[in-house]
Design a protein around this nucleic acid. Sequence first.
RNA 1: GGAGAAAUGGCAGAGUGGUCGAAUGCGGCAGUCUUGAAAACUGUUGAGGGUCACACCUCCGGGGGUUCGAAUCCCUCUUUCUCCGCCA
Length: 424
Amino acid sequence: MLQVAFIRENRETVLKGLAKRNFKNAVEMVDKTILADEERRAIQTELDAILAESNKLSKDIGDLFKSGETQKVAILKEKTVLLKDKSKELTENLQQKANELQELLYLIPNIPNEIVPEGISAEDNLNVFQEGEIPKLHEGAMPHWELAKKYDIIDFELGNKISGAGFPVYKGKGAKLQRALINYFLDKNTAAGYDEVQVPHLVNEASGFGTGQLPDKEGQMYHDATDNLYLIPTAEVPVTNIYRDVILKETEFPICKTAYTPCFRREAGSYGAHVRGLNRLHQFDKVEIVRIEHPSNSYAALNLMVNHVKGILQELKLPYRILRLCGGDMGFTSALTYDFEVFSTAQDRWLEISSVSNFETFQANRLKLRFKNSEGKSELAHTLNGSSLALPRVLAGLLENCQTPEGIKIPDALIPYCGFEYIN
RNA sequence: GGAGAAAUGGCAGAGUGGUCGAAUGCGGCAGUCUUGAAAACUGUUGAGGGUCACACCUCCGGGGGUUCGAAUCCCUCUUUCUCCGCCA
């Protein structure tokens, strides 16, 4: 959520940013917001004046009681009754106007950073880096879902039986490889200075709003109506919400956290060949990194995160590329996003395996995540997060790129974690 | 699941209808002293709205109510603690 004061004072910048996102009705939305804010403040001022008067009268009444002038009290009481009616009415108006403003603010996405490329779809993303050799596969090479079946390491049909499509069962070496990847990623992240945390997999409404999943992506989350809890779509939600309503000291920066969690996504509206196998699941595993930074350092931190993820992919020897997302393809809350994609040799397409973003103050504003600056004033912090990494597509890339006639050759870095060199 | 108690500033903890945004202690920050540090002493120290800046307004777990006036009384929800039961 953008700060109203920022919108008010930087209308043109905001409109320019929204245009880059191809955001519809930007002028109308922004002007409505500015108007609602003005109205809200006007009502607030009026209400404050009435409350001030009412407070003063109450004090006077107290004094009169003390000095025994009780006959005067009745007159003052009458006055306060009138003020009370008025203040009640204004309070209701204020509440209504504040809600209206809040709802408008919820609908306005973050302003993209200067270097975000223009564009409307994934086609327009900017390829900023590519590395790793795309292997020439042997005769009879298969896509990962066939490999999974051949070696009996992932059972999609069994998942269908237990839950439904998108809930695979990992078996034998497949299950062990999952566990190996999780441990490997966590070890890499903690070695890079990220503190490991274990967090709840169900979160309340306030947390959903804090990181921006609500109200924007309500339909993408599984929701338990009985207790009004949401299954997390990413560890970003519980981990970032650790810092909801927190005021940090400047010396506490940077805050670096990593967490493994399963992620649950309804993926409503997804269909077709691209959701085959591990490409798109309702439940998947992911190791996340989250940083909370001083505003002056957040872009340097974003680069650190990008380089960190690069390091892991290099070690796994997977062919990958990095895209700077264009305005039209960026997430609602992000100011700058880099997507990592691994090449799926057998499918002949790139698969997104990580998304690293700087949200600047967008999340912090909702979270009320602030720090005391050098002048002793509260200022919003910057939040960032990234996948490091999402398992299924790493696994897909790994199975496909590392297949040999002898079986799947496990990358050296993972062998100590899974305890075998081949899946065959 | 049953019974009882509680929720106040970064922490501890006082405050049972008006002068309480709130004593006191600890912690934090600034200063004095010191070569420096510690100790001691002095000052300062919650958040949000509003304003050019003040004024002013709101907030004592959340929501509602009583009252001219609520941290304080009432209702309700949530959470925590203690005891009992059940279970990993």
